[in-house]
């Protein structure tokens, strides 16, 4: 009989709902570095490995009309380097084209 009563169904309020951020979030860091004069360099570090960095770079270069390279770092893996201050644009690109959550992207610099 007890099963017919809706309210008696067991519900564990402390159960894991699965939507917390317990899993380690891999932030994507977008940084800026000053070069000589008023020139700057934008670095994008920590892109998920399942994406092809080369293709992303190609798209970025075309979109922002700037040059860029992929730098292989011993600890941090592959890092995309772009010429000029492309931080906001990169952020837009990543969130719209690659569906990366904005909270996982960190923009550094001034």
């Amino acid at each position: 009989m007890s099963t017919s009563i809706e309210n008696l169904k067991t519900f564990d309020p402390f159960a894991d709902t699965g939507d917390d951020d317990s899993q380690p979030t891999n932030y994507i860091h977008i940084r800026i570095q000053q070069r000589n004069g008023r020139k700057t360099l934008t670095t994008v570090q920590g892109l998920p490995v399942e994406y092809d960095q080369k293709r992303i770079l190609r798209a970025l270069k075309k979109d922002f009309a700037c040059n860029g390279t992929i730098v292989k770092d011993d600890e941090l893996g592959e890092v995309i380097q772009l010429q000029g201050d492309q931080r906001v644009k990169v952020m837009e690109f990543l969130s719209t084209q690659l569906n990366i959550l904005k909270k996982n992207i960190k923009i550094h610099g001034f």
Binding site: H29, R31, Q33, R35, N36, L41, T43, Q45, V71, D73, L76, V79, Q81, H108
Partner: peptide, 8 residues
Amino acid sequence: TGFQAHIG
């Protein structure tokens, strides 16, 4: 600090 590009 994260990644630091070589400058110069």
